[in-house]
């Protein structure tokens, strides 16, 4: 009954995305299915299968509901996971990689027994942060550990005379900061602002303040071990790129209706611009123009909100 319901749901999803996208999806699946048996490393196939099951199991929200409705729901989940990973097991059988088939089947049996642990992030007070930016605060609370690791790596790099590590850490921190805005917003969030100008003003003020604040320790480490104008210039360029990158994502996310398209957009346009502008400061000019274009588009699209 449950599997019938799920297959009906899948059918409806396919019907809703339209025939063209369905063909694209089928072609993508066929390519994957063709490529899977070509993999020579025997561990890639089971790793992909286990990761797929793991991701699906930890992300699913219907566990409590199923546990209430069905007595042996774990068996049901195991069957579902086996069905989901059929392409991997078939690829394993075709390539006579029976070990991968065994590993995937075992994962499908064991994952239903696993209860995802709810991690509780303690309330870290952030008094120095800009108060008008919620998402940056949230990102910092999530990324505090990577941030400390980056600081440690930058320190180690400096001690061992490799200043490039510190520079790389500064750039990686910029990318991590971007994760703050890779989530779909509610349109009601925009309605909270007085007008578009206030929205952009607060956004820019928040980015400049927060980016500078969190970059200071990394920048200080770089300059401490290599006090040169060249390094100062690099820090300035990365900071400007990061501010533009964050402002771009924070504005552009309101145009997207799915997280996938938002991620694709982030990876295809602002991220390369951020990356290359860190090394070639001249790229900051097209990046700035691009951001201005995004702002204009947002102003036009949401003009009724503040009319």
């Amino acid at each position: 009954m449950y599997l019938k319901l799920r297959s009906r749901q899948l059918g409806r999803i396919l019907a809703s995305i339209g025939p063209l996208r369905c063909i694209f999806l089928v072609l993508l699946c066929a390519t994957l299915f063709y490529l899977l048996p070509q993999i020579e490393n025997p561990w890639i196939l089971p790793a992909c299968g286990v990761l797929l099951i793991g991701f699906y199991h930890t992300q699913r929200k219907d566990r409590e509901f199923l546990a209430l409705q069905i007595k042996k729901f774990r068996r049901l989940l195991a069957i579902e996971y086996l069905l989901v990973t059929t392409p991997f097991t078939l690829a394993g059988i075709l390539t006579r990689n029976y070990l991968s088939v065994g590993v995937i089947c075992l994962a499908a049996m064991l994952f239903p027994l696993y209860r995802p642990i709810k991690t509780r992030i303690p309330k870290i007070p952030l008094p120095g942060f800009y108060t008008g930016d919620l998402l940056y605060r949230r990102m910092f609370r999530r990324q505090i550990l990577p941030y400390l690791i980056l600081l440690f790596l930058a320190l180690m790099g400096g001690i061992h005379g490799n200043i490039r590590i510190g520079k790389a850490c500064l750039m990686i921190w910029g990318i991590l900061e971007g994760t703050a805005f890779l989530e779909l917003p509610q349109l009601t969030e925009l309605a909270l602002y007085r007008d578009f100008k206030t929205f952009q003003k607060r956004l820019l003020a928040g980015m400049v303040w927060n980016v500078v604040l969190t970059s200071i320790p990394l920048a200080a480490l770089i300059l401490c071990f290599s006090p040169e104008w060249k390094q100062a210039g690099f820090i300035l360029t990365v900071s400007m790129s990061t501010i533009l990158y964050l402002c771009n994502l924070a504005t552009a996310r309101f145009f997207h209706s799915t997280t996938v398209t938002l991620w694709i957009y982030g990876l295809v346009l602002p991220l390369p611009l951020f990356f290359f502008s860190c090394f070639i400061p001249l790229i900051l000019i097209p990046f700035l123009l691009f951001q201005a274009g995004i702002c204009l588009m947002a102003k036009t699209k949401f003009s009724k909100l503040w009319n």
Partner: peptide, 8 residues
């Protein structure tokens, strides 16, 4: 804080 700032 965010909501108050958002209204300027």
């Amino acid at each position: 804080h965010f909501c108050i700032k958002a209204k300027g």
